[in-house]
Amino acid sequence: MDEDWPTHGWPAAAYGQEKAYVERALDVFERDHSGIRVVRLRPGFVFKREAATEQRRLFGGPFLPNALIRRGLIPVVPDHPLLRLQAVHAADVGQAYRLAVTRQVTGAFNIAADPVIDPRTLADLLDARLVRVPAALLRGALAAAWRMRLVPTAPDLLDMVLRVPLMDTTRARAELGWTPEHTAVDAVRELLEGIRTGADADPPPLAAETSGPARTREFSSGVGKRP
């Protein structure tokens, strides 16, 4: 879908609600400040090696061993036709922002690299086999793990992922002049390698020390849904 796709998000997921709120805030700002150039970038999942610890905290939680994320150790990847995402390397997103600032463009731009990351792509990256899984079973397993406080990812987020449209990035390439230097597979591979090695960076959201010794701060702040 191009940039005209409705931006109300998936209302049941907090993540989608937050994105929709930002869009509405920009709508109001653009209406009230017609003399200011407003550019909106809508990236896919943004990955890089140094973000690995943060991404593991957000989606995997404290129980996920870093060493498990290597080829051959994860035996299967769930296969569902709507279980797919678009990714982009953080360096390419930075380039898109630079272009948005320095070029006289306005409006929204979808930002994502090729190819679309689907279960087959993940299976190839992990040297795992695909197992077809119905959406209801996927959601049920995630919901159970979330309610048991084993993972920080709510099942509503899976509902959103299964409904997110694939973005057309033609406008970003043609009008913004943006061309990613990394493929989506490069970005995901770098993230997986970063998780395996415990890669991080100095800012607190990215730093491993933010988790505390043996990830104690992650446990003390609560994992998943509290009873």
Rank of each mutant, 00 (worst) to 15 (best):
L138Q: 04
H89C: 13
I111L: 06
L85M: 14
H80V: 01
V93N: 02
I117T: 01
A91M: 13
P62E: 00
L122H: 05
D92R: 11
L82K: 14
A96P: 05
L138H: 04
G94P: 07
R129Y: 00
A128P: 11
P81H: 01
A91S: 15
G94N: 06
Q104C: 01
A87R: 06
V131H: 11
R70H: 12
L68S: 11
R103P: 01
D79L: 11
R120V: 00
T121I: 11
P78L: 04
P81E: 00
L125R: 09
D79E: 15
R132P: 10
P62W: 00
V133A: 05
Q95F: 04
A136S: 09
Y97H: 10
L126I: 02
T106P: 00
T102A: 04
A135R: 09
H89S: 13
L85H: 10
Q104V: 03
N110W: 00
V116S: 02
L138W: 02
L82M: 12
Q86M: 10
F109C: 09
F109S: 11
P81Y: 03
P75M: 01
A100M: 01
P78Y: 02
T106W: 01
T121F: 03
L137E: 08
D92M: 12
V131M: 07
L122M: 15
V131R: 13
L73Y: 11
V131F: 11
R84S: 09
L122N: 06
P65Y: 07
L82E: 13
L64K: 03
A112K: 04
I74T: 08
R103Q: 13
N66Q: 12
L126T: 06
A96Q: 04
L73Q: 14
V77C: 00
A113G: 08
T121Q: 07
D118F: 13
Y97R: 05
T106G: 11
I111W: 06
A91W: 12
L83I: 09
R103D: 03
T106I: 02
V116A: 00
V116F: 07
P78M: 00
L73D: 12
G107W: 00
Q86H: 09
A108Y: 02
R70A: 15
T121S: 08
P81T: 02
Y97P: 01
A96M: 05
N66W: 01
L137Q: 08
V131A: 11
P65F: 05
R132K: 12
D124V: 12
D114A: 15
L73T: 15
L125Q: 08
V105A: 02
